[in-house]
Structure formats: C-alpha cells, structure tokens
Amino acid sequence: MSARNTIIETVAKNKPALIPLPEMDFSQFETPVDLFEAFSKQLLVVGGRLIEMNDESGLSQLIQQEKSAGVNIINRVTNMGEPDVVPENAAALHAVDKAYISGAFGVAENGAIWVWESAMGQRILPFICQQLVLVLRRKQLVANMHLAYNRINVQEEGFGVFIAGPSKTADIEQSLVIGAHGPKALSVIILH
C-alpha cells in the first residue's frame, strides 16, 4: 500500500469520534475606536517607522530625490505611474537599498501589513532589500487578525505575507538585533 493510503487509513482508524467546529463570533471582541492611533502605536513596538503624507505627489518627490542622490531604489507603488520592473535573479537584487511597495491593508492589533505578490514584482523583493517602505492609505486598516483574514482570500495569489516591522532576531542571549536576514529598517508611509 502507498504511504499515502497507509497514513490516511491509520488516521481514519485511530481518530476520535467527530467533534464539531466551534462557533466563532469575533464581533464580540472589543476593537479600538481609533484604528490609526492603535496601528501607529503597534508599528513602533515592532520596530517600524511611521511617515505621514498628504498625497502621492510628496511620495514621488521623495523617491525622485533619493534616486538622483544615487540610492538604489525599486519603486513598485503603482499609482505613481508604471512600477519598476524587478529582476528575477536574487543576486541582482542583493544591492537594492530601498524598495517601495504598496501594502493592501494594516492590522491595528499588531502593526502588520498584508502584501500581495503582485505588489512585490518578485517575491523576494521585500525580504532582500536593505530597507523596506510600505505604502498604505489611512483608511486601509482593520482592527485584528480575524477581520484581516475576513478581508482577503489567501489563495487569490500564489504568495502573500503579513509583515510586522523590520527583520529581527534575539538568538544571541535574547538581545534584540534589528536586521537579521531581511530589511534593517521598515518605514510605513500613510497617505491621508
């Protein structure tokens, strides 16, 4: 018999009698009145930086300035014209200083932001860049993870990720170090 059938049959034989799924009513949970305030607070806790802007023009100005100053930038924010094409090869991306990527929405309870593969161009981009900038609109916020999963169909794209702050580790004597393998900094630009 195949390993698959052996496993499934033993499981079927050994499993307990049916136990029903719980009824989950998460609308009973308290949510913050001001999502933006709660999100901003959590973003700081996870090591992120918040930048508020009025509109995209400020953002495109900033990117232009940085580009002309020689910063190696990949800009994937689509509402400012054509996004930059992202090379497929990881070695080519290793030198990227800063990537600008649109987040789908943020989560107030933990400062995480959902990012779709389509926004990244290449899946590795938000991880391999030295600094990551995620761009969100102020109204794109949910209170908690239940509402976050309500809002997405996780299989819509091949890959998607919640990102909460820059990459970090505390593997050496529990001392927090920002910048493990991924970005050493995460900024979130909130467009009002």
Partner: peptide
C-alpha cells in the same frame, strides 16, 4: 485568525512574528 493571534504572543510575547508568509503556488 485565531492561531496567528496566539502563536507569537505565547512564544516570545510579540503580537505577531515579523513575517507570516502564505504559500499557495510556486512562483
């Protein structure tokens, strides 16, 4: 929604891990 709220809080006291990656198809 339930498990991602509990895992990191139970593990290290973080509200969530830095990366919660969802893989559905190969690139």
């Amino acid at each position: 929604g339930v498990f991602t709220r509990m895992l990191a809080r139970s593990a290290t006291g973080q509200a969530i891990t830095t990366y919660t990656s969802h893989f559905h198809r190969p690139r």
